[in-house]
Write a protein that binds this DNA or RNA. Structure first.
Lengths: 253, 253
DNA sequence: GGCAGAACAAGAGCAGTGCTCTCGTCTGTG
DNA sequence: CACAGACGAGAGCACTGCTCTTGTTCTGCC
């Protein structure tokens, strides 16, 4: 409980972080399947068995990386949410979606870890569910704020099957937001669809099909915003570029 | 070239098939990461090295399974396409999407193989691209036939960025179909989004969020059809159930 | 302040993996 | 009939995740 007590704990925290860092580096280089405890230990100058003092097994290390990845992509989305103009929901929506895409393209292996096939026989432990929902919550926040500002057109998806509406209402109740069930349902669908778009691009399914990736993504995402019912005050101009940002500067030759 | 020549070849084909079958069985049981050449060989009563006469390495075996999986899901989609009423594009669209979802739910590990994280360091070989596009082609066929029958409303996505339109036109030219660029672009997006929906359900991302999976999926898919511009002659009734099919009978207690 | 006990690193070892190489055997074909 | 190629078996290599044992270092409590 005293100050000295922190010595070992701090050493432990530092070593744990070092292990995760090195693991993340190997993950980025080789992918999850090739991540080797022994290689991590070797690179850190320790013996493989010592590593088990910090992580009970390989899956646990992977879980830690998964949580970190969820948090990273979630934080990116939240940052984009906070930075974008609150009064222009469509642009805000696009900003969040773009952030997700950018992060995924920059960290394909970590993205694969969280939105690819689940690893071996392992089911995502409880610790991952909260970080996993951050992107979804950011998207919901866009709709919530839009509605509060009267910028949510609710005409779009008028009716929705009863069972779907119940799920939607249960979700909004749990999150304590006030959204009509059709909007919520469309939002959840758009959430999944967003990751469909991103996943196809990251995993190369768009090769030889879509070349103008950025424009295509923006266009698709604008369509999703429209389906959800987001409006930027004036109607119609959902596809133009409000805040042009360099997005991906072309790499120098 | 004579009949006798087939003896060895047939034995080879049979053994190859047996290997793939057993591998598929292990895949379904344990997932791709746990698929072991030695275990396959063991189960088949041969020694591991003998297996290398049929597949040069593990990745090659996986590739074979990937191609098979693409073909299986593609064939399912095509079967649904052929079975559904040609004059009701929305229902046809839904039939194809449902087929994809059903197959994915029935073969989660194989689905993960083709639409999850790409395995180790390996990039999908050329042999996979044709089978991989079969579902997409089925979706395009729905739109193509709908347009031919005058059941494609082209008003929806009117304008599309130039670069996106160029990609779209290049694609339609390559496939030799006649579709307006905005429709093609929306179609490609819907293709990716469909797999976003399916993937989220298969990989458990909808846990504790969406309970009425089937209804939710149908609803989302109807929205996609609408975005593409498909119509069933009469307008509006895109969400009702035309051909009710038992889909997934509830499991007994 | 000293000491029991926990935390830790190191090493050996086990069972498993993908893959290679060698060595007999069988077989279809010139 | 003879021979080249296909084939199966086995040993072996380098690697993996993980466990257990041994010796050392640190830490909180009496």
């Amino acid at each position: 409980m005293n100050a000295i007590r922190g010595v070992r704990e701090r050493a432990r925290a530092e070593i744990t972080a070092a292990i995760k860092d090195e693991a993340r580096r190997q993950l980025a280089r080789e992918g999850a399947a090739r991540l080797s405890l022994r290689a991590v230990a070797r690179e850190l100058g320790m013996v493989s068995s010592a590593l088990y003092r910090y992580f009970p097994n390989r899956d646990e290390l992977l879980t830690a990386l998964i949580v970190d990845a969820y948090d990273a992509i979630g934080a990116t989305a939240e940052r984009a949410l906070a930075a974008a103009d609150r009064d222009r929901p469509v642009i805000r929506w696009r900003a969040v979606c773009r952030a997700v895409r950018q992060w995924a393209l920059a960290h394909p292996h970590e993205y694969a870890l969280i939105h690819g096939s689940p690893v071996p026989g392992y089911s995502a432990p409880q610790a991952t569910v909260a970080p996993a929902s951050r992107v979804g919550l950011a998207l919901i926040a866009v709709a919530r704020d839009a509605r509060a500002a009267g910028l949510l057109r609710e005409s779009a998806a008028t009716s929705v099957p009863r069972a779907v509406a119940e799920d939607a209402d249960r979700l909004t109740a749990r999150l304590d937001v006030d959204l009509p069930a059709p909007v919520t349902a469309t939002l959840v669908a758009a959430w999944a669809e967003l990751f469909g778009l991103v996943g196809f691009e990251v995993f190369g399914q768009f090769n030889r099909v879509v070349e103008a990736r950025e424009e295509f993504f923006d266009h698709a995402v604008a369509r999703l915003a429209e389906a959800v019912g987001l409006t930027d005050g004036d109607v119609g101009l959902t596809d133009g570029d409000g805040e042009r940002e360099p997005a991906t500067p072309p790499p120098g030759p």
